[in-house]
């Protein structure tokens, strides 16, 4: 008899492989260099949180917290300098946005120009649902008519 793994064992093997692959992925925390870290842990935590919201304008699909790009590093340092100087989180973010525009925000703000981004997906799902409902209703009616 051929030795085949039982389905349950197969799933366990698959999960183990996936977990292994996940472990191989880049650790996003590694972009921050030791010398950048602030002495005050509260400041550092705020800097990390802000950095995760800001897009690296060179690599574009990473936050500056993830990115090894030099400009991302300089932006991280700038964020930390402003925190140490006493800026609030909003003030730090507003400063970077004033230089680079809303594009640097990984979560774009809800406003006129970005409304399509926020409403668009919901609208498309709603349209699809309505189309499905009307289709099944009609199909049901036709089946009823045919059965009569």
């Amino acid at each position: 008899m051929a030795d085949r793994p039982a389905p349950a064992r197969r799933i366990v093997v698959l999960l183990a492989v996936l977990a292994g692959l996940a472990g191989l992925g880049p650790d996003p925390a590694h972009a921050v260099l030791p010398e950048e870290v602030l002495a005050n842990p509260a400041h550092e935590a705020r800097a990390r949180a802000i950095s995760k919201e800001l897009r690296c304008v060179v690599c574009q699909n990473q936050s500056i917290d993830d990115s090894d790009a030099e400009l991302a590093r300089d932006l991280r340092v700038l964020v930390r300098q402003r925190i140490v100087k006493g800026d609030s989180d909003d003030e730090v973010i507003a400063y970077v946005v004033s230089r680079y525009g809303d594009f640097v925000l990984l979560r774009p703000p809800v406003k006129g120009a970005t409304l399509v981004l926020w409403i668009g997906p919901i609208a498309i799902v709603l349209i699809g649902l309505l189309a499905l409902i009307s289709y099944f209703r009609r199909a049901g009616r036709e089946a009823e008519n045919a059965g009569r």
Binding site: V57, L71, D74, R99, Y100, G101
Partner: peptide, 13 residues
Amino acid sequence: PRSEGAIAFGVTG
């Protein structure tokens, strides 16, 4: 050297 000017101008490259 620390991108102070570059960030002031919002430079990306």
